[in-house]
């Protein structure tokens, strides 16, 4: 195979259909960028699950007027309960400290919250997180110094279903964009084949192998896919630097949202590149088989 010949054919082809090539690269880039975003969100969700689900599952908030006897009665009950794996007492001061840390990026909020506004609580980890109802029944709201029992798992489930929804929506848009990209690739290849019909006709007549005739077109699409993938990765890097690392710096520092690591982007980049190159090449090959006589 004459590499120079094939490469110069590829370059000519891309240059000749410049506008189509640009359109093809941009749609591919958007599609792959969204796909990458979806993958990053998916990674973030599993990181967050590790952060949260391992921690508190049920919070028992105590009433403001709780007495010392009531508090130690609750503690004894927790210590004796077979449903409880571990528990942790958090005083008003500790709750306020944690609150200050979490919202250190929003000083106004911290300033406007008096130190004793946050209730003291027991943070309880269950042997089986599904058995929240049992604990809730043992500590009726508003009795014996208990203000409220809250299933943090329930809140997390709602949070994660929101995040899962975001991930699914991103991937759905990515799929639609990918469809548009594939159609554009197909169209561009048909146009390229039409532009080069003199060359390919002669190649056919002098007995060039099918691969020799088809390869420039397939490489042309694959190259566009690769450039699209590189733009997509560039877009993800910019999103991390300009949006995630800046706007979300507070929650990340407080440990509410896991950071987007460079390693995560490094891991998905080859996936994006592979998808871009592979899909483009396959689309080109199928187009040549179906629509173009070579």
């Amino acid at each position: 195979m004459r590499v120079n010949f094939v490469l110069s054919e590829v370059a000519t082809g891309l240059r000749r259909n410049l506008t189509m090539t640009v359109a093809m690269i941009l749609t591919t880039a958007i599609s792959l960028g969204l796909m990458g975003t979806g993958l990053l969100i998916a990674g973030m969700i599993s990181d967050m699950k590790e952060i949260y689900y391992d921690k508190v599952q049920v919070s028992i908030f105590l009433a403001d007027d709780v007495t010392d006897e009531q508090r130690s009665a609750i503690e004894t009950q927790l210590a004796d309960s077979p449903e409880v794996a571990t528990y942790l007492y958090e005083s008003k001061e500790e709750a306020y400290e944690r609150f200050r840390q979490q919202f250190s990026q929003q000083p106004e909020l911290v300033e406007n919250t008096p130190p004793d506004a946050l209730p003291e609580s027991f943070r309880v980890e269950l042997v089986n997180p599904e058995r929240y109802e049992v604990i809730a029944a043992e500590f009726p709201n508003g009795q014996n110094g208990v203000d409220q029992v809250r299933d943090e798992g329930d809140f997390l489930d709602r949070l994660f279903s929101l995040l899962n929804g975001a991930r699914n929506a991103t991937i759905a848009v990515a799929v639609v964009q990918a469809l548009a990209a594939l159609l554009l690739i197909s169209n561009t290849i048909q146009l390229a084949a039409f532009n080069r019909r003199n060359e390919t006709n002669i190649m056919r007549l002098v007995g060039a192998s099918r691969w020799y005739t088809q390869l420039p077109f397939i490489l042309e699409a694959a190259l566009a896919g690769l450039i699209g993938a590189m733009l997509a990765v560039g877009g993800l890097v910019l999103t991390k630097v300009l949006f995630v690392d800046k706007t979300l710096a507070g929650p990340i520092k407080a440990g509410i949202i896991p950071p987007v690591d460079w390693s995560a982007i490094a891991t998905i980049s080859p996936i994006i590149a592979g998808a871009g190159v592979g899909l483009a090449a396959v689309a080109a090959y199928v187009t040549l088989r179906l629509y173009v006589r070579l």
């Binding site: 195979m1 004459r2 003199n198 060359e199 006709n201 002669i202 002098v206 192998s209 020799y212």
Partner: peptide, 21 residues
């Protein structure tokens, strides 16, 4: 004739050999 317009005489002839390696 079916020649390639952007290639010289020698290139047109060589093309037939190049593409069959």
């Amino acid at each position: 004739f079916r020649l390639l317009r952007n290639r010289t005489v020698a290139e047109n002839v060589a093309f037939a050999l190049e593409v069959i390696n």
